[in-house]
Design a protein around this nucleic acid. Structure first.
Lengths: 122, 122
DNA sequence: CCGTATCCCTGGAGATACTG
DNA sequence: CAGTATCTCCAGGGATACGG
């Protein structure tokens, strides 16, 4: 299958950066990778939580495209694929930490009020 | 009209933070507000660039909902509405600066390669 | 000037089943 | 185990026109 390049035009650097880490599951995935270092697909999937294989795969592929993560495939059976941050991905660490800090300090309490009933169960 | 609360379930703080600033036009809008301080609607619209009134309005309303920006309406004719960051919004400054720095250093060159022909014209 | 109302349409995203 | 392949659904987002 052909790998289509995403043609997202970013008008400014902030937008460009958000295009890289702003995907629906990219934030959490990246965060777990920067905490745990290296993770197999299913380990990552388990940590991210409520995500389908298809979605997680897509997001990881995009991150790989952008040079943020490494995808190491072992020629074994059963298959084994490990994901880890690249050097470029490591440069995101302060930003991701910053986002996490801010989220804990500001967004989380507020969002908990809004979702009185619904947890993120499915 | 009733203002619907967004019921986005964030599983972690990083996600929660991205839910706040990850909207399509929020990054640029916030960045211009933190640079210019206070802007009228059309000034902001002009700076953001290729955005419709409807979209910009929606994004600004969400930011207002989240307590990130202030919306000051002057009871004049012709109407005049000014937007500015709240105290809470100011706490995003280091993150936005970080995103901008990272975008300039990493994402922008790469994205320019991908769009060899297409600029962000319409 | 600063929005809202309406219409429409693309693609993001989930469920499910299948394969190397 | 780690993915693709299909199908489907609906919300995000754009164009346009109208209103206070």
């Amino acid at each position: 299958m052909e790998v289509e390049k995403k043609k997202v035009s970013a008008g400014c650097p902030v937008e460009a950066a958000l295009n890289v880490i702003g995907g629906k599951w990219k934030g959490i995935a990246l965060y777990h990778l920067l905490v745990d270092g290296t993770l197999r697909f299913n380990e990552l999937k388990r940590r991210v939580g409520n995500v389908t294989q298809r979605m997680l795969t897509k997001q990881l592929r995009e991150l790989e495209e952008d040079g943020i993560i490494n995808r190491h495939v072992y020629a074994e059976v059963p298959p084994k694929v490990e994901y880890s941050l690249t050097e470029k991905g490591e440069t995101l660490r302060p930003i991701l930490i910053g986002l996490r800090e801010w989220g804990m300090a500001n967004a989380f309490p507020e969002f908990l009020e809004k979702n009185s009933t619904a947890s993120n169960d499915k």
